[in-house]
Design a protein around this nucleic acid. Structure first.
Lengths: 235, 235
DNA sequence: TTCACACTTCGATGATAGTCGAATTTTTTG
DNA sequence: CAAAAAATTCGACTATCATCGAAGTGTGAA
């Protein structure tokens, strides 16, 4: 009979270098130690020490591929705790044009563990709601009859997505839009589908996402979603 | 346009003294600085310094009543972040009989911000479900027709409870039982009702709750809930 | 009004932990 | 096999921050 003690995990997260690594891993991907060292602007030996602590503390797990060691978040619960901390964290002032661009990119579209968030994620979710393809059910989303057809036509197998123990379609509060986007198995599968269609692409070095020209066109034609600023268009 | 930075809030939570205070404030009550100092086993001046940081960092708010200064969590979101950290925190080994008793008491019944948790909270929730007074609806609970009558007879005004912007009845994962208890406005109102009936009482110095002899009898007669160990009975 | 109590502020101390240079280990490549 | 690359380990250094004694401020009770 033991009582969890949050001090250790909180102090693990509360270091700037470690937080930078964790934020990058919120992309949901597994990243090699060297890339995490670069992301955190520390030497490989410092990163190694930090990563070992986070593995020991249960925040990360790692797998080796030859001489490369890949790290990822230990569970969706770790991702959720990081997001919950985001909701109570003070906004950090932007101090350079580079930071401003990165901030804008994150606000526009980013991965929130394994599903899309930001302006694009919220627009997607609310358009699906407006078209009656999704509806709210408590803190979840449910797919309508028309919605089931739409997802199937869009190339997604709802039965396959429903299989498994995770939540099907959950509302996830978006910290930049202050409205919900869609998480859960359906949110993750939709995001994967958008990547597969090359409608969205990762921006290297973080978890920001860019919408491709195919994506802007597809979102407009399939769902009637348009965005105010075409400067976001990928080259 | 700013991006939240979780380092500051995480490092605030990651100090043992500050975490002890935050855990006490998870009772949902406002506590005076002197009591928080005692709970954390530090001097008033140390506590004062910590409390100022947490107020500055947005975790706590305070109000003065004469020479007493009462602190409480700044929002339900802070409570949720603390709970989310609990879900990923390693169990802390118990090292004394006193700690063991406190751990047992927390496991049996405690406040999780403003609703009851632990073995009692989960037993209540699941009994209401078993009797068909509540049913699960996504990640929420919904009250059945019979349930509405039961709550009304129990002295609770569901219309009043539903008023307001907060979730009505939410599933909240219980870290000690690993099952859900009921949070949200209904969970809070039910907990308040149990206090009002003197079925439960706070144990001073933390957020553990004891069930009174009226409570054991009431829970048994009203809901058919019994517990294995009568040693938990309050004198 | 005086005294006691709650709380805050100031400043010095000491422990802790992040950091990187150096060295070592492991794996891959030519 | 030798060299390069990825990652880890070791050890010393230094900056940071929690801590408490001392002092000060504000409020309430006698």
């Amino acid at each position: 009979m033991a009582t969890p003690n949050i001090v250790e995990v909180a102090s693990l997260i509360g270091d700037p270098s470690r937080a930078a690594m964790l934020m990058n891993l919120l992309s949901g991907k597994a990243l090699p130690a060297s890339e995490l060292a670069r992301a955190a602007h520390v030497t490989p030996q410092t990163a190694s020490s930090h990563l070992a602590k986070m593995v020991e503390g249960g925040l990360l797990v790692h797998e080796s591929y030859g001489r490369h060691r890949y790290y990822r978040l230990a569970s969706a619960e770790v991702g959720q705790a990081l997001e919950a901390l985001h909701a109570i964290a003070p906004p950090k002032p932007v101090r350079s044009l580079r930071e401003s661009d990165q901030s804008k990119a994150l606000h526009f579209a980013r991965t929130c563990y394994d599903h899309i968030a930001g302006e694009v994620g919220v627009a997607l979710t609310h358009r699906l709601l407006a078209l009656g393809l999704l509806h709210e059910e408590g803190r979840d989303f449910a797919v309508s009859i028309d919605g089931a057809k739409w997802f199937r036509d869009f190339g997604m197998d709802l039965d396959e997505i429903r299989r498994g123990r995770r939540h099907f379609a959950r509302q996830c509060l978006d910290w930049s839009e202050r409205r919900h986007h869609m998480a859960g198995a359906l949110g993750a599968a939709l995001t994967t589908r958008l990547f597969d269609l090359s409608w969205i692409d990762s921006i290297p070095g973080g978890r920001a996402i860019q919408v491709t020209k195919y994506g802007f066109r597809g979102l407009s034609q399939e769902l009637g979603i348009t965005f105010d600023d075409e400067w976001k268009q990928a080259e």
